[in-house]
Design a protein around this nucleic acid. Structure first.
Lengths: 193, 193
DNA sequence: GTCAATTTTGACATAATTGTCAAAATTGAA
DNA sequence: TTCAATTTTGACAATTATGTCAAAATTGAC
């Protein structure tokens, strides 16, 4: 390959994700992305065609990383501990961002650009992926007799709850408040006593 | 008063709310608002100073109407039925909008413009108001022995859950999916058997 | 070292949004 | 009916964003 790209793609995508998380899809301009990444606007257009395509690439990258993390969080052999861990880590990740940019997927879903089927598509991949990871873990627990509820219904319910906590984070950014919500939820769930 | 306003304020605010719900705060332009309301752009600037002030006025109006509705939904004397009703109505209201504009407050929270303390402020009023209505109903139920959980913790939890369902609605716009989440939640709650 | 493919760069025209302002129109009150 | 306060209207300048393009720079392969 001659005329090779100067920038490192993964590095750029990580920065791009944070800019979109910060300002939202619509409010983010190619100029913002150029400034933050250090890649000139023209180069971004050349490499990614336009904002929409760049966003899709960045979001796919985000989904992939996110699902890997979820899987690790849920890996604990004790189901109740696995979910407790997932939620605690989830809260910690949200709080770790000093700029309080919030949950990228939830932000994008709510901004949701109904005119963009390709964005809807990548959001579905994200949510279905999350639900599937949770569903798998609940089925395993169910098979082992550790969990007594219906795995699919609870997977849906928990996906919704995590989205709700992401909303609460943006409104209050209060760690205890979020932890309290998850504790209330966990305490109710039909784990084997 | 001489030189009286031609337009009806409540009518305009209702339309304004729907435009903001549709496009989000940032993406909505004064031109959009002028087109939809039929009030000229210059008149809107004259009457409301700018987009921010107009938004705040519209959101306050929305909050007021919303809280009145919640109170009615929760009025049923049987607590479990009251909440079942609240959730069912909540789903129906979201689905009633053929344009799928989504939950106005949740959309605004996630767009959340951290640079705008006045918008954060009106969002707090909204969420605190919602939590308080739920809290009051749960305390009543608790006092009557119908509800065995801690009212405040459950109020927080339910506010989060409703926000989560609002996110799910934008992603899937599937009535059964939403109903299923609420049913799973209700079934777990510590109402008296 | 040369070449050719590719990326980078800066400039450009187009389009959209903002906030302001002065002139015109409206209307309640005297 | 007149008047003065207020709103409405359309136009304006300033700012910002978009997408495109041609020239310059870069670099892997030969």
């Amino acid at each position: 390959m001659v005329g090779t790209r100067k920038f490192n793609e993964e590095e750029i995508l990580s920065i791009v994700i944070n800019v979109f998380r910060d300002k939202g899809y619509t409010a983010t301009t190619m100029l913002d992305l150029a400034k933050e990444t250090g890649v000139q606007r023209g180069s971004l257009y050349n490499a990614y065609k336009n904002k929409n395509t760049l966003f899709l690439k960045a979001f796919d990258y985000y989904t992939q990383q996110f699902l890997e993390i979820i899987e690790k969080d849920l890996a604990h052999p004790d189901a109740k501990i696995a979910f407790t861990q997932l939620f605690a880590n989830s809260v910690n990740r949200l709080m770790a961002d000093e700029q309080k940019r919030g949950c990228f997927s939830t932000r994008t879903i709510m901004e949701s650009i109904r005119q963009c089927p390709d964005i809807q598509q990548c959001l579905s991949v994200f949510l279905d992926g999350l639900q599937e990871k949770i569903h798998e873990r609940l089925m395993k627990a169910h098979d082992e007799g550790e969990f007594l509820g219906e795995p699919l219904r609870y997977a849906r319910y928990l996906v919704a709850l995590t989205r709700g906590v992401a909303v609460i984070e943006q409104a209050y950014s209060d760690k205890e408040h979020m932890a309290d919500i998850y504790n209330t939820a966990i305490a109710q769930m039909p784990f084997r006593k």
